[in-house]
Design a binder for these strands. Sequence first.
DNA 1: TTGACATATACCCATATCGGAATATATATT
DNA 2: AATATATATTCCGATATGGGTATATGTCAA
Lengths: 109, 109
Amino acid sequence: MSRAATTSDVFNAIAESRRREILELLASQERPVGDIVDLLGLEQPSVSKHLRVLRDVDLVRVRREGRQMLYRTNADAIRPLHDWAGGFKQYWRNQLQRIKERAEEKGQS
Amino acid sequence: MSRAATTSDVFNAIAESRRREILELLASQERPVGDIVDLLGLEQPSVSKHLRVLRDVDLVRVRREGRQMLYRTNADAIRPLHDWAGGFKQYWRNQLQRIKERAEEKGQS
DNA sequence: TTGACATATACCCATATCGGAATATATATT
DNA sequence: AATATATATTCCGATATGGGTATATGTCAA
């Protein structure tokens, strides 16, 4: 067996720029597949496949409305990613930024 | 031409869990390749290849010290990722969290 | 210069992945 | 029931990828 499985986690799911675009489109409102096809100029099967990947890792959710499937981004699923990246804050350069972050971590929650 | 190029950007570089582990190891201190090999239990060529990918997107930097190559994480390169994920904050569930984030965005910079 | 050590690169194999085309499935309409 | 619409799945071909093994490159020590 060669090459580890991939598309099965959030990190891999967002590795594709098309999928990131889809997540952005569906963050503020749910949309049917056809809208995404039009907006991104991709083939319908292609969009469906990307949506399947996103769905498998719970980055998007669906509900049926007649013959349409309405997708929307599940922003919460993006948090692990944000958190992971945030773990490196302490090593960022900009001092002002670092001070600000320190304050956030301590302060007003 | 089929299948888009990948390993050429930060998102793809961190898609591999091994590479994320490497970034974590090298965040707090620089280390020679051999240390990573020992710590992660991977083959040396494998580690070198992952480091090459990380290096190409500037997620790690190197300097030579005798016959060793000392790598360290360039945390700043992780910020774009953090920022992208952060763009979804407004759609997160937890209200307390949301309120906190709102304060951050406005307030004390 | 020769040999040991540290790391990088090349090459091969098995598999994953993407895009495209064709087809299947589900639902609404008539 | 037949047809149209919306979306999903399957199959195919081209390529990317990761791991392993062998080998190349670079540096230090004797």
